[in-house]
Amino acid sequence: MKITGAIGLAAAIVVVAGCEREQREFDKPSISSNPRAQAAGMSALQPGAPGRGMQPTASAGGYNEKSAYEIAQGKQLYRWYNCVGCHAQGGGGIGPALMDDQWIYGSTPDAIFATIVEGRPNGMPSFRGRIPEAQVWQLVAYVRSMGGLVSSDVAPNRSDGLLGAPPEGLREPKRPAENKPK
């Protein structure tokens, strides 16, 4: 049955990449959901790059843009936490568009995390203490997928609603030209 084995191996190799994409982690205790748990000495609003050493970084774990589940959860949270209220389905309105190539504060996961947690000048509120850290990372992954910056096989597909924008998985990547505050 050599052929059977060979075919099985080929099929297995093809889907090995699937293991990370399909991971679903449910148990994520989060610290910053409690407003009182801030480390002493953290300043409130810090536009621009995240303060060194005071902010969780993507490389410390917790951020996973290779998991379709995390990004899909981020998409749900985007709707539930009313990001659409200012950013619409990515086209922007009161807030800037999230699906174009203008990343005012940068498109790296750390930068987007800082934007959400610390807020930014001109109206982006700080969600520190409101949104648990694990969920912020999910939102970060989703926002990056809105600009087409995650792999297309983990990006979300169209949503079951009125078509607001093309499905994230079919968008061209929108890398930032340069960091330019508006």
């Binding site: 297995a12 293991c19 399909e22 589940y69 899909a72 979300p156 597909n157 169209r158 079951d160 499905p167």
Partner: peptide, 23 residues
């Protein structure tokens, strides 16, 4: 490898559809 179908053998949409059928 963790990508096993998980929407039932009848794969009803929307659970197996684009929004809720994750991955």
């Amino acid at each position: 490898f963790g990508t096993g179908a998980d929407a039932g053998w009848f794969a009803y949409v929307p659970l197996a559809g684009p929004e809720y059928g994750i991955g």
